[in-house]
Design a protein around this nucleic acid. Sequence first.
DNA 1: AACTCGGGGCC
DNA 2: GGCCCAGAGTT
Length: 351
Amino acid sequence: MSSVEAGPLLAWFSQHRRRFPWRTPFPRDPYLVLVAEVMLQQTQASRVAVLFPRFLERFPTLDLLAAASEDEVVAAFAGLGYYRRARLLHRLAREVAARGWPRSSSELVRLPGMGPYTAAAVAAFAFGELTPPVDGNLCRITARLFAVNSVLRSPTLSAQAHAFARKLVATHPTPEIFEALMELGATVCTPQQPQCAICPWATHCAAFRGGKPSAFPLPQPARTKETPTWVALWVENAAGEVLLRQLTEPPLLGLWLPPLHRGDGDPQYRAAILAQEAGLVANPSLVGSLRHHITHRRITVLLFRAAPPLGVREEANGFRWASPSALLPTSSLAEKLARLAHRSRAKGEAP
DNA sequence: AACTCGGGGCC
DNA sequence: GGCCCAGAGTT
């Protein structure tokens, strides 16, 4: 590990640091660090930068988050994905509101939603602890610097990354080192086409000297991919409300969406089943399709439209009417479906 | 150790 | 298209 030193990294970071709303001076407000780090789990910073301010406006303090209902918290997470994070964040807020903040990573890691990475990050950025948060960036940098033949999230590579960061921070004892490492990984030592020409450590990097920096870490084993077809039913009443149903199993468990049929069979028949379950007599008609990706699934959604029931605003079991702006736990899929429904209506297709 | 869980950005 | 992202929980 030898000649790789923190100095060049910190010098580079001082010139190339990106501005993010959670990057306030150290030590940071633990609540801000918490929300940012949970959102950043498996989510690119540019994406979090869009939704982080909205969430903090909705829940400015940990006590307000703890006082909210779980559904309100999940609704504020809409569009971020991995909604289990929102539920765990809510549980965590209630524990901390009741008992106060643990200040060490070894205690933080026992809280819901806090794994080794997030606990170390909160401890470092909010409380000054110098235990390295080991994330994908640090692991990738470590794999390249030392030509480690491991896949990204293997225990062996994580251990080497932890040891490397610990040596670095020993010479410059500031949590800024950890943020600089992540920034280098996110903007220079990137997964594909790393920018070795501007890397402060290129001359010390085994992967760079070997000529193929992107060969490290080793590629992940291929995932099996599914390409299911879902059927969705769009029903809008005279008040402009849309019929929604809560999903009772993953994926998207607990979220409110237009009624979905996620089985197999003839699409028109599946749409008729949805209409029947919703207590509708109208015959659904196809209005269009869209693609949606979640984890290893590449989903085609066929959207059908059906007329609302006349008169009474009935809500069959598990269904409810809601205006598009209603604060319900939902997915970005809901917005895609709404856009498709309104496009098709604008083109004059039959309701 | 292997799976599951969203969604978007980037090639 | 395929790959990956400031991971954690469950089996």
